Each structure stands twice: as C-alpha cells, then as structure tokens.
Amino acid sequence: MNFSVTDNDFFKETSLLSKEEKKGTVIHKSPSNIALIKYWGKHGVQLPNNPSLSFTLTNAFTETKLHYQTKAENESKSEISLEFWFENKKNEKFEQKIHKFLESLLPTQPFLGFVHLKIYSQNSFPHSAGIASSASSMATLALCLCDLEKQLLNTLENKEEFYQKASYLARLGSGSAARSVYSNIPITTWGQTNAIENTSDLYASPYSLPIHDIFQNYQDTILIVSAEEKSVSSRAGHALMETNPFAQTRYELAHSNLQKLITALEKGDTKTFIEVVENEAFVLHALMMCSSPPFILMETGTLTIIKKIQKFRKDNNIPICFTLDAGANVHVLYPNKYKNECLDFIERKLKPFCFEGKYLKDQLPVNSNQ
C-alpha cells in the first residue's frame, strides 16, 4: 500500500460510525528501538531528512490499554475526552501531552471526537532509568488508535495497511516511534531510499533485505550512565539541524553509511558493521556539539565506557561495539555467540560507570511475521 503525502488519505468519514453505543478495550505492546543509522534533522510534519535503520528491542517495551465508549448524542464531537494513567497513577503531565497529540489528529481522524477515552500505560523498564520511552509509548498508542478505528469504522482490515497507518500516526507523535510498531521484526527502516524497495518518509517498514546469521538474535545491553532528564530535548535538537553548517554533509553520509550497512548485514561483515555503527553514534553527537547553540549530552562515564569497549574488542578479537541515542546512555551491541564473554566484561569493567550500577539486558526479537 502506498500513501500519498497528504493527510487527507487518512480521513475516515464519521458517517461510518454505528448509531448504537459502542464500548470496548484494546491492548497493545510496543518495544523501544535503537537506531544504527540515525535520524537527526527533519522537515515538514515529522518527515526525516535522511533514511534511518534500527534494531528492534525485546525486553524494553511499553504496554497500553485503551478503554473507549461512544459519547451521548448531546455531547460535543469536536473535542477530545481523555483520562490518562501511567503506572497505575493519574499523570497530568503525560495526559496533557497525549491530549495535545490527539487534538492534532482530529482533522484527519474525526472519529476520535466521538468517544470517551481512558488510557492506561506502563513500561517494562523504570521511567527514570534514562531510556527514552517516547518511541515505545507513541508506537503502542498509535496501534491502539488503529485498533479503535478498526472496531468503530470496520476499516484497516488489511494487515499491511494497519501497520503502515500505525507507523504513520506514531511518527506524528515521535519520529523514532514510527520504527517501533513492528514488535516482532528485528530490523526496521524509515525514510525513502533507493537502496531499499518500498521505503517511505511517511511510515517505517520491516527490513526486506538479507540478514546474515551472525546478526540474528543480536544482543543489546543498555548501560544507564545517567537517569537525569536531557538538558536539550530531541525535538529541540532536530530543530537546530536547520542551521547546522554540516547538515547537508551529514545527510549524504547517512545514505552512504546505510549502503555500507546493508552490505555488512548481508555478508556478515562485523568489521564494517562496527565501523558504520560507531561512526553514526559519533556523528550524531558531533552534530550536537556543532549546533548553534552547541550542546553536549555525553557524560564522562559515556566516554570512559566507549574507550573500554574499544580496548576490549582489540585485546580479545570479539566484535563488540557501541552506539548512542540522543543521550548519555550506551548501547553495547554484540553477537549472541559472544554473549557470556561480553556480559562478564560488562559486569566487571563497565558496571562501575553506570548510574547506581544499572544496566538492562536486551536483544533483537526472533524474526517472524508481524
């Protein structure tokens, strides 16, 4: 299914709504993801300036339960009616954010104004652990909204259409969330590129090219270097790319690195994989430091951990590497066959540099149909 660039393609006539009262519950779970080819810089409404590719995680996820009931005849259908709970507690801050997001969808998703919504959300990881949860939380909300539309309007019966629209909606809430709707797909891409067929700026897609066995069940241990809120939000960081003097060079590099990574994933070339993945992490943070005003999200512990990973790789000839998101925490990536050696190294040498000794063991899901 191919959507055009206009939001009108997603408009569903509210006349399709049944006149009888409807109520029910939908539940979805979405994982976090870690980008290997980074998305940094956007245009339009959450459209990426370069394609990105990410590993889907398994253990770090958000689960959302959405209760809905159609409004009475005399109630306004042009307003969002919402209550939101996070981890079994009413959360006004999150509720305001979700309310604003749903309001922004009303012009193209008018059926949202015809229901009362109660949303309950929780993470499998501590919210204060320093792992960005916007990808998993907005992805699972988008899946719930598509399920709601399906139940109210009898649309989205096609599986591919369902997930493409969920990815489209998730993208509007958080760009990286577009890649988190595919919970059982180990690698996803987002952003149009000639290197991969059927890619789009509007929604993410399951990675469709060959993947060597060495990258199956790949491990990702997330080291919590800092649990503090970032000094500069990702949204603000993206905006600063508009005046970054190295922006165009970065976008060209992303396409080049993506092509290298595609070849490495197919051939099982861990050396090139490591070179590309670590380069992307460094470039992301270099762009932050070259912004105006500049900002630094890495901490002292981040740099210490990076150096220790690179030394361990050289000394032991084990293909372990790192990547970073837009924060201080370090994702340690390594093949499943080296899991014992890498976890022992992390416990002995890297744990002391983690906030309260915290790290989370994660991995890619086993490849299956969504």
Rank of each mutant, 00 (worst) to 15 (best):
Q310G: 06
A326H: 01
K311E: 15
K351E: 14
I296F: 10
L343F: 09
T323E: 14
V332H: 00
T302F: 02
A328E: 08
N329A: 12
E299S: 05
N317C: 02
K349A: 13
N329K: 04
I309E: 12
I296W: 10
K307C: 09
R313E: 14
K339E: 15
N317S: 15
H331A: 15
T323A: 07
N336R: 01
T304W: 00
Y334F: 15
N336I: 02
K351Q: 13
C342R: 02
K337M: 13
K349C: 10
V332F: 06
L350R: 00
D315E: 15
K351G: 13
E341G: 09
I346N: 01
P293W: 02
T304G: 03
N340V: 08
Y338I: 00
K337Y: 08
V330M: 07
P335A: 09
R313N: 09
G301D: 15
E347A: 12
L303I: 07
E341P: 08
T323S: 07
I305R: 00
N329P: 12
R348A: 15
K337P: 05
I309D: 01
G301A: 02
C321R: 01
P352C: 08
K337F: 05
L324G: 01
R313Q: 14
P335H: 02
Q310V: 11
E299V: 01
E347P: 00
F312C: 04
K308G: 09
A326C: 11
N316Y: 11
E341Y: 04
K351F: 11
F322R: 00
F312P: 07
N316R: 03
G301E: 12
Y334S: 05
L324Y: 02
I306H: 04
T304P: 08
N329W: 11
S291A: 09
V330K: 00
I346K: 00
E299Y: 03
I320N: 10
I318T: 11
L324N: 00
K339G: 04
D344Y: 01
K308A: 13
T300P: 11
I346Y: 01
I320E: 08
R348I: 12
P352E: 09
L297V: 12
A326L: 14
K349P: 04
R348Q: 15
C342N: 05
K339R: 07
A328W: 01
N340E: 06
F295T: 10
N336K: 06
T323K: 03
S292N: 11
G327H: 08
C321V: 03
S292P: 13
R348W: 09
V332D: 11
N329V: 14
I320L: 11
L350G: 03
T304L: 11
E341I: 03
L333E: 12
F345A: 05
S291M: 01
T302V: 07
L343R: 11
N336M: 08
R313K: 04
K337W: 07
N329I: 15
V332M: 07
S292W: 06
L333S: 04
D325P: 05
I296A: 07
K308C: 14
K351P: 08
I296P: 12
E341K: 03
A326W: 05
I309Y: 02
S292M: 12
E299I: 01
Y334T: 14
M298W: 07
K339V: 13
L343Y: 10
I346L: 00
D315P: 10
E347R: 02
Y334V: 09
L303E: 08
D325K: 04
